[in-house]
Computed example of a mutant assay.
Amino acid sequence: MQAMNAPVKKRLLELLDELIAHDGFGSIKVDIRLLKRGQKEVIIDCGKQYRYVVDFESRQEKQGA
């Protein structure tokens, strides 16, 4: 599961580094939307939008296993 999130985490850290180094102000917004069962869409908005679809396991599925 962690490997599926790696590109999202990498992009967030890169954008954070860019904003800290930027000579001015900036913001990062992260939206997470539930898609079909077992997937979420992660949208990172920082001037541009970066969209990722990641698999996830719900708490109910974890408890039932």
Rank of each mutant, 00 (worst) to 15 (best):
G26S: 07
G26P: 04
I44K: 01
M4N: 10
F56L: 11
A6G: 04
R33Q: 08
L16I: 14
L19V: 04
K29M: 09
F56D: 09
A65C: 10
Q63W: 06
L12I: 14
Y52A: 01
I43W: 00
I43Q: 03
V30N: 02
V30T: 12
L15V: 07
L34E: 12
A3G: 04
D17L: 10
F56W: 14
L15N: 05
K62E: 11
K40W: 03
L19T: 06
Q63S: 09
A3V: 10
V54D: 01
L15D: 02
L35E: 10
Y50C: 01
I32W: 05
V42W: 00
Y52P: 01
G38E: 05
V42C: 02
G24W: 03
K10N: 10
V30G: 02
E41H: 05
Y52L: 03
Y52R: 03
K62I: 12
N5V: 04
R11C: 00
A6Y: 04
L12C: 08
S58Q: 07
Q63L: 14
R37I: 10
I28K: 05
S58L: 06
R33A: 13
Q60R: 15
R33F: 09
S27Q: 09
K29V: 11
K36M: 09
Y52H: 08
A6P: 02
E41A: 15
L16D: 13
Q39W: 07
L16S: 13
Q60I: 12
V8Q: 02
P7A: 03
Q2F: 14
E61W: 06
F56Y: 15
Q63A: 13
L13C: 12
D45F: 00
G26Y: 03
P7Y: 01
L12W: 01
E61Y: 10
D45W: 00
I32P: 04
R59K: 15
D23N: 07
Q39D: 07
I43Y: 00
Q39S: 08
E57W: 08
V30S: 02
L16N: 09
H22Y: 09
F56G: 08
K9H: 08
E41S: 14
K9T: 08
Q60S: 15
V8E: 00
D17A: 15
L35S: 07
R11S: 00
I32Y: 04
V42H: 00
I28T: 06
L34F: 06
R37Q: 11
R11G: 00
M4Q: 06
L12M: 15
S27T: 12
V54M: 02
L34P: 04
G24S: 09
